[in-house]
Design a protein around this nucleic acid. Structure first.
Lengths: 185, 185
DNA sequence: GTCTATACGATGATAGAC
DNA sequence: GTCTATCATCGTATAGAC
């Protein structure tokens, strides 16, 4: 299989999802029409349907992209040599939130309540992020607080759970600020 | 103005919003058609439009109803003579969450990211709930921990903020459990 | 692969009788 | 106030040329 062609295909798909996310952040998942995404991406209707089976497929791809991007930021801290303490971890995480992506993220939560495919994506990504947080906190407990690895892992669980919860609440808070307010720091 | 007529009108409106909330919890805000709400309420299309200007108006009414109901539970604790400590407060609050209403609540968050009217309703209700939590925590600090009222109010602020955040995260968690799981306790 | 034009279905909202 | 029947709009998805 020609991997160059595959790479181009992935690039087009990314181009489309990125345009879609911009539209979603403005008008929401369902109120965004294919025509709008067409205009935003600079492509045509036919081209979009050549890369995505239907709109549901496109929404899934966009949801994955947004959630993956957020998880990516987290992954960097987990591998750090000087792990931040939980409060600092949360502060850095929330500081890295992009308002537009926060809106799409919250829209995705809403969609997940009635769409099983989206629900699985969200739950899966949330579990992964919680696991990464667990790694971060464990690393901090071991390297900075000098706990035994076994005990550190155990004590990290409720802490990771709480950090995740506070992060989600912060994401919601940012998503609920009106688009006109988001430039004001 | 005849208040009996007004009361009947309110009753009909409630009947419609309750049916709407049931539909929303199953299919989401946007994917629920007026026809479905018609069937669920046992009324007709014309009757619904006699009580609500349009679908947006109906969604607003439903959002208000759900959020107000959740705030109501909280109001009881604020007036209690033996205020629960923050952990207990959160535990009781989360225990009182109805899965169907949790789903509509999260859907409302999603809608609020792009709909200014809904956004104002959500922000307003959130602020009110946080204020009530503040009252609860202050009452606990004064009556149980025997702090001075002035200091209690000040110390209660970050606590109320955190309880609210954890409550929101728990609401999301419950909303994301699939409808088939919600009977399993 | 990408485009334009179009078919088809669904849905919000209205009209008018009772 | 409530109903049934209907309209008009919009949006997804496809067909077919290039």
């Amino acid at each position: 299989m020609p991997r160059l062609t595959d790479a181009r295909k992935e690039l087009r798909r990314a181009q489309i999802t990125e345009a879609a996310v911009r539209c979603f952040s403005r008008n929401g998942l369902e109120r965004t029409s294919i025509a709008e995404i067409t205009a935003e991406s600079g492509l045509s209707v036919g081209s979009i349907y050549a890369h995505y089976r239907n709109k549901a497929d496109l929404v899934q791809g966009s949801a994955r992209a947004v959630l993956a991007k957020r998880a990516e930021v987290l992954g960097e801290y987990a591998a750090s040599d000087t792990p931040p303490d939980p409060d600092e971890l949360l502060a850095r995480l929330t500081a890295a939130i992009d308002p537009a992506e926060a809106r799409v993220g919250v829209q995705t939560w809403g969609e997940a309540t009635t769409n099983l495919v989206i629900r699985d994506i969200v739950v899966d990504m949330t579990d992964r992020m919680r696991a990464m947080l667990h790694d971060c906190v464990t690393a901090w407990l071991v390297k900075v607080e000098h706990l035994e690895p076994a005990e550190a892992r155990e004590r990290a669980t409720p802490v990771a759970h709480r950090v995740m919860a506070l992060y989600q609440a912060e994401l919601l808070y940012i998503a609920l600020q009106s688009p006109t307010e988001e430039t004001a720091s």
